Amino acid sequence: MSTLSHALTDSTTMLRRQLRHMRRYPSLTLQLIGLPVIFLLLFVYVFGGTLGNGIDGASGGRRAYVEYVTPGIVLMAMAATAQGTAVAVALDMTQGIVARFRTMAIWRPSVLTGHVIASVLQALLGIAAVTGVALLIGFRPDATPTEWLAAAGLLAGFALALTWLTVGFGLAAKTVESASNTPMFLMLLPFLGSGFVPTDTMPTWLRWFAEHQPFTPLTETLRGLLLGTPIGDSAAQAIGWCATLTITGYAWSKYLFNRTASR
């Protein structure tokens, strides 16, 4: 068997393992998908009437706000899924299963690739759930098929980036609890960007941070693709952040995994 086929076979096996875990223990998956949906309903029906009247000087109320906030909630769903990845990796590392895998004739990185692919699929499931609920409560994108495809590709790329980053958090964690807590800042970043309110309404110091963190250009690019708002240079920034986070997360995860293997 060639190295490539060996890698594909073992990665597929590890992916099946993760998917079986998701099926046997659905509570975590439901929580990761349900939390963003709850936030969507909360912000639209509790705050949307007021916030929607302040978006770009419009007076559209909840209908305007559901269109504004949905891209931010979609990215929040991805951050929530990534947090679950850190927990799953930490469980494998602390419960000894990885040590057992290392005694077997398998392609060693397949342990991580199984987690990554399963997490990306879980993130896409969460995105579909949030988008479906948003459509039911008034989200009306006017994107062309090409724009939908571009938005899907951007989301898949960002899901991959966040997943590799949180795999690193899971490998670096000493306990499962710390693996659960460390990536929580990712859930806050959509709030500290343009996900819920325009950045020009923020204080100067906070506005600078909001405009230079990864979730803001992702949010603005999604809005542009789905709703036709101006994108500017946000698309280039979003792609740059996806590439940077993917490369950084992959290199960090590979280093940590190889370091534990040499002990």
Score class of each variant (00 low, 15 high):
I239Y: 05
S110V: 06
T3D: 13
R20V: 12
N53A: 07
R108Y: 08
L149Q: 10
V197R: 05
L256H: 11
W164M: 07
T216W: 00
A99S: 12
L124M: 15
L256S: 11
A156E: 07
G240E: 10
I55N: 01
R63C: 06
F185Y: 13
L8K: 01
L8N: 02
A90T: 02
D56M: 13
P190L: 11
A82Q: 09
L28D: 14
V74M: 04
E147Y: 01
A151M: 06
A90M: 11
L136H: 07
F139Y: 14
G168P: 03
H6N: 08
G84S: 06
P230Q: 10
R100L: 13
S194P: 00
A156S: 07
A261S: 11
Q83S: 13
I247M: 13
Q95D: 15
I55G: 03
A79S: 14
A143Y: 00
A151L: 06
T131G: 09
K254R: 15
E147A: 14
F39W: 05
T166F: 03
V74C: 04
L206G: 07
T146K: 10
L149T: 12
T219P: 00
I127Q: 05
A251P: 03
A236I: 15
L112A: 11
G61I: 05
V69H: 00
G61Y: 02
Q237C: 06
W148E: 12
L121M: 13
A151W: 00
G193R: 06
L135G: 10
I55R: 01
T103P: 05
V69M: 02
G157P: 09
S11V: 08
A134K: 02
T248Y: 03
T144L: 08
G195T: 05
A179L: 08
A90C: 12
T248L: 15
T13A: 13
T81L: 11
V66C: 04
A129T: 05
T81R: 03
L171F: 09
H212A: 06
A150K: 08
T113V: 15
L189I: 09
A58R: 14
T244H: 09
F185P: 00
G228R: 00
M22H: 15
R63P: 00
L149P: 03
M104S: 11
D92E: 10
L256D: 04
S194L: 02
L162Q: 05
H212Q: 11
T70S: 02
T201Q: 12
S27N: 07
S5K: 12
P141L: 04
A134G: 09
G157I: 10
S234E: 12
T216A: 09
D142I: 14
L206A: 14
L30Y: 15
R102T: 05
A151D: 02
A118F: 15
L4S: 09
R23G: 11
D233W: 05
L162T: 02
P71L: 05
S5H: 10
M93D: 04
W208V: 07
T12M: 13
T70V: 06
D142V: 15
Q213D: 07
V133W: 01
W148S: 11
E211Q: 08
F43A: 09
A99Y: 09
F185I: 14
